[in-house]
Design a protein around this nucleic acid. Sequence first.
RNA 1: GGUCGGUUCGUCUAGGGGUUAGGACGUAUCCCUUUCACGGAUAAAACACGGGUUCGAUUCCCGUACCGACUACCA
Length: 512
Amino acid sequence: MSKEVRVRFAPSPTGPLHIGGVRTALYNYLFAKKMGGKFLLRIEDTDQTRFVPGAEEYIQESLAWLGISPDESPWNPGDCGPYRQSERKPSYMQYALDLVEAGHAYYAFDTSEELEAMRERLEAARVVQPQYNNITRTQMKNSLTLSEDEVKAKLAAGEPYVIRVKIPRNEEVRLNDMIRGWVMVHTSTLDDKVLMKSDGMPTYHLANIVDDHLMNITHVIRGEEWLPSAPLHVLLYKYFGWEDTMPEFAHLPLLLKPDGNGKLSKRDGDKLGFPVFPINWENKENGETAAGFREQGYLPDAFLNFLSFLGWNPGDEREIFSLEELIKAFSVERIGKSGTKFDIAKAKWYNEQYLRAKSNPELAEYVISGASADGITILPETAEAIVSLTKERVTFPADLWQECKFVVTSPAEFDEAIASKRWNADAVTVLTAYAELLEGYTGAYDAEKAKAMLGETAEAKEIKLGKVMQAVRLAITGVGVGPDLMEIFAILGTEEVAKRIRFALASLEVIG
RNA sequence: GGUCGGUUCGUCUAGGGGUUAGGACGUAUCCCUUUCACGGAUAAAACACGGGUUCGAUUCCCGUACCGACUACCA
């Protein structure tokens, strides 16, 4: 009988979650759902000095936006609470003491000055790697070098101390990573990491082992930056006697900067020209806003689809996957090993695909709200007409309105570059004649009719329509690019088209 | 520096002892369109390097190079 799969996403609330973290959460979610298990969220707030207000809510909102909300979390607790490490504080010390008792950990009383002095001493002696380990601990103030009475006295006197793990001198630690296979590390390269800090809080290393055990976590899926400390974690499972239920590990490849130098970090922000956060983040300290994908107009499904392909692929040639389909197709075996550069062009492409898949009435809402933000009230029919004109050519919902503003606001000025190239005598001739024609016309007017009439006008003047089309577009919209012009004519109607032509004729200088 | 990890088109990747090394994004060209796009077609574009093993290696092994992570009383 196999146990229920339980995975956790365990961010620390030190600021906004960046997309690497979001991808980790997503893979955890996909794996849990694929296996019919549970996805939990645990807040790792053991560093009280780095706590940032609002970060927890940010995490919650980001996951909710993407539709990958946890089954158990601080806000939706299951049977393994609390889901915030700060609230689990009372339980950790005993575990650390058990380790001391068993000889796998010890008290250390060294002050930060003494630690600094030790590092300097070692550096002076050209020790390449100054660390608190099985050699240097013999020269420090700890329960291994002090007598039992001295230790008791210090403890009784309330002297600050930490508890460090006692890494064995000569052992090989093996770890079978689900993505990387066997990883072996010799304990001589490990240091005696602090397990309990002097403020009474555990470090990540202790807390994550204790909590994963207590919360029945079966698989730890996390970023590659944790791989170097994974052997320590394996050792801790062994010392606690929890080897039988030790979770399996999967260390995800890193998300890299587009230039390939280093992992994508929170600081990269929009200085790289794209967001690195799922949703906007207001920095309360400096009042700055870090851009989020949501606010930039990325659709959650598109973003999720894009993110899922950063380091994973289904093994066939499909590209578009709903969340349901991702769950079905997902497997840890198909996660790659190498770091992944972040390519915003692909994200845009995904967004376009998802945008076009939406219905016109749905998209019309974006146009209506875009217009209303500009103080313009627009009819649903007009909004839908704009949508059908534009949806095939935009990336973001907001573009729908931006690209078609001129439908409801006639141009006040005209693109200089186009005017200087295209506003010639032929254009003026055709446009003047077309305006006259429209002004005397009262029949039906649709895109086809508009085109036919324009064609006839040009033909009558013996001018090729193609030669003057850009100028016609300029007169009507003020710019050189945009949706199908004849469709725009139809939406505008004869009167408005004629009016705009007259205005352009009066405003623009004819070239050469 | 040390430890660990990684390396297939510019990017995301498929593949795997014998393949014309496949797809997608992006780029370019052409077609469609008397406008703008969409769309369609085509093209350029990759197995880091050196040794081994083998009839044969991009694929397996070993080195080298390069890239990255880690190296806190941070996670």
